[in-house]
Amino acid sequence: MHEIITARLSEVGDLCRRLGVRRLDVFGSAVGDSFDVASSDVDVLVEFDAGPGFDYFDSYFALKEGLEQLFGRPVDLVSGSSIRNPYSRQRVMETREQLYAA
C-alpha cells in the first residue's frame, strides 16, 4: 500500500466511523508498484453498515469527498455489489488491502 494512504490511516478510520462504514479496502495501483504520485487516483471498495434510516447517498458522497481531501487526489469509490463483471470482481477481491473495519 502506498505511503500516501498509510500516512492517513488514522484520519480514514475517523471518517469511516463517522459515516457508518463497515469495511473499507484499497485496491488497484495504490497497492502495487504502478502507483504514480503525479497522476494516479485511489481505488477504494466500501461496505456500509446500512441499518434503518441509513442515508446511503449522503454517506457515499461524504466518504468520497473526505477521502479525496485526505489523499489529495481523485478517489474511485465502489461497492462490492456494483462490480458486475466476475473477472473484475475476482481481481479486486484478490488484490484489496484493508484500510478500515468496524
Rank of each mutant, 00 (worst) to 15 (best):
G20V: 06
K64W: 04
A62W: 02
K64E: 12
L19A: 05
L67R: 06
M1Q: 05
Y60S: 03
R18H: 08
A62N: 06
M1V: 13
G20I: 05
V78W: 00
H2C: 09
F27N: 00
V78N: 01
H2N: 15
S59P: 00
Q69P: 00
Y60Q: 03
A30I: 07
Q90T: 07
M93S: 01
Y100L: 13
D25A: 03
L70E: 11
R18V: 06
E3Y: 08
V42F: 04
G20C: 09
A50E: 15
P86F: 02
V21M: 09
S59I: 00
R22Y: 13
Y56P: 05
F54Y: 10
A7R: 15
F48W: 06
F35K: 07
D49A: 15
Q98V: 07
R73L: 08
Y56C: 03
A38C: 07
S10F: 09
G13I: 13
F71K: 04
V44R: 02
D76V: 00
I83H: 00
L19E: 06
L45Q: 02
A101C: 15
R23Q: 15
F27P: 01
A38P: 05
D25T: 03
L77Q: 01
F54A: 05
V37W: 05
S34M: 10
V37Q: 12
S40F: 08
N85T: 10
C16P: 11
E97C: 10
A101N: 12
A50V: 07
R23V: 12
N85P: 07
R89K: 14
Y87N: 12
R17E: 15
I4V: 15
F71A: 03
G53H: 06
D55Y: 02
V31T: 15
V44L: 11
E68Y: 00
E3Q: 13
D36L: 04
G28P: 03
L99F: 10
Y100M: 10
F57G: 04
Q69D: 11
F27Y: 12
P74S: 04
K64L: 11
D41I: 07
F35R: 06
L9G: 06
S34L: 14
L67F: 08
L9V: 10
D76R: 01
A101V: 15
V46K: 01
A102L: 11
R18A: 14
V37F: 09
D14N: 14
S88Q: 13
R84P: 00
G20Y: 05
G66Y: 03
F35D: 09
E11C: 12
Y87T: 12
R73K: 13
E68A: 03
Y56H: 13
R91H: 13
G13S: 15
Y100V: 10
L45P: 02
F27V: 00
Y56S: 05
L70G: 12
L99T: 10
S40V: 04
L77P: 02
L45K: 02
Y60H: 10
D33K: 15
P74F: 05
V12K: 11
L19H: 06
Y100A: 14
Q90L: 11
F54W: 06
R17Y: 11
Q90A: 14
G80T: 03
A62M: 06
L63W: 04
S82D: 03
D36N: 11
L45M: 08
F71P: 01
R8A: 11
Q69S: 12
L9I: 10
V78G: 00
L19Q: 06
L9R: 13
